[in-house]
C-alpha cells in the first residue's frame, strides 16, 4: 500500500465523524462579534493602522491565540479515539504495513484537517468583509494575496504544535491526561510570547506570527520582522524530534 492510499483509508475512517462541522463552528462564531462591533475598527485609539487591517488582525486574534491550537487538539483526540475504540490499533498493527507509515499518514490527516479549517476561515473572512463593507459603507476588503499569505503563515506556524500534540497523544495512553496537558499548555501561551524564550514554546507560534503581522500593519505595536534565526531551527528541531518520537512509540503499548 502506498502512502496516498493509506491517506485515503484514513479519510474513509473520518466519514460521519462530523469533524468539518466542529471545525467550522469556531470559524463562524469568531466573526459574529467582529460584525456586531464593526464600528470599533474606526476608533483606532492612536494606533497607526487602517480600519481594514484592524478588522483582519482583530478577527484572527482569538483564532491564533486559542482556536487553532484547540482545533488541532480536538482533531488529534478524534484521530486517536477512533482507533482506541473497538481495538482499532490492534487491527491496524496486524496489517503488513510499517507502523511509521501509518503514523505519518495519520499526522498528514491532522495537517489536512488544519488546511480545511484554514480555507474555511479565509472564506468566512471574505464573507464577513463583504457584509461589514455593506453595513458600514467602507471598503474593508483586503487584497487576497496579503490575507492568504498571512493566514497561511499562521497555519504553517502551527505545524510544530501539531507535531507536539501528536507526540503527546502517542505517548500518553489515558485520554484524560493527553487532553489535560494539551488544554493546560494553551493557557500560558499569551504569557510566553512576551518572554525571551517564546521560540521554545510551540503553542505560541501562531500567535507570534499574527502579532508580527500586527506589528507590520501598525508601527510600534510589536516587532515588525519575524526573528527567523533562533526560531526556524528550533521549530524544525522540535517538529522532527516530536515526529520521530511519535513514529517510534506508535502503537507500542498495544503491541505488548
Amino acid at each position: 500500500m502506498n502512502f496516498i492510499s493509506l491517506i485515503g483509508v484514513e479519510l474513509t475512517k473520518l466519514r460521519r465523524s462530523k469533524i468539518i462541522l466542529i471545525l467550522l463552528t469556531p470559524v463562524v462564531i469568531m466573526w459574529i462579534p467582529s460584525i456586531l462591533n464593526a464600528k470599533i475598527n474606526f476608533n483606532l485609539q492612536g494606533i497607526p493602522i487602517t480600519p481594514e487591517h484592524n478588522f483582519f488582525i482583530q478577527g484572527f486574534m482569538g483564532m491564533a491565540w486559542f482556536m487553532i491550537p484547540a482545533s488541532l487538539l480536538i482533531c488529534t483526540t478524534l484521530l486517536v479515539q477512533t482507533e482506541r475504540n473497538h481495538k482499532g490499533f490492534l487491527k491496524m498493527l496486524s496489517l503488513p504495513l510499517s507502523s511509521t507509515k501509518l503514523c505519518l499518514a495519520k499526522f498528514t490527516i491532522l495537517l489536512l484537517l488544519a488546511t480545511v479549517q484554514m480555507v474555511m476561515s479565509i472564506g468566512t473572512y471574505y464573507l464577513c468583509c463583504a457584509t461589514v463593507s455593506q453595513l458600514q459603507n467602507y471598503n474593508f476588503i483586503l487584497e487576497p494575496l496579503y490575507v492568504i499569505s498571512n493566514v497561511l503563515q499562521i497555519y504553517a506556524g502551527a505545524i510544530p504544535l501539531a507535531a507536539v500534540f501528536w507526540m503527546i497523544a502517542t505517548l500518553i495512553q489515558a485520554p484524560v491526561f493527553f487532553v489535560g496537558t494539551g488544554l493546560a499548555s494553551l493557557v500560558p501561551s499569551i504569557l510566553m510570547i512576551n518572554t525571551k524564550f517564546w521560540f521554545l514554546y510551540p503553542m505560541s507560534y501562531p500567535f507570534y506570527l499574527l502579532m508580527t503581522a500586527y506589528g507590520k500593519a501598525a508601527e510600534g505595536i510589536y516587532e515588525t520582522e519575524i526573528a527567523w534565526l533562533p526560531w526556524l531551527p528550533t521549530a524544525m528541531l522540535i517538529t522532527i524530534t516530536a515526529l520521530a518520537i511519535s513514529c517510534i512509540r506508535f502503537g507500542v503499548s498495544e503491541r505488548r
Binding site: S17, K18, I22, T25, P26, I29, M30, P33, G62, F66, M67, A70, L73, I74, T77, L78, Q81, P175, V179, L183
Partner: peptide, 20 residues
C-alpha cells in the same frame, strides 16, 4: 457518545464566551 465531540463543543463554548 464520542469524547472528542463533547470536548470540541466545550472548547468552542469557552472560546466563544471569552470573546463576550
Amino acid at each position: 457518545q464520542n469524547m472528542w465531540v463533547s470536548l470540541g463543543i466545550g472548547v468552542i463554548l469557552v472560546f466563544t464566551v471569552s470573546v463576550f
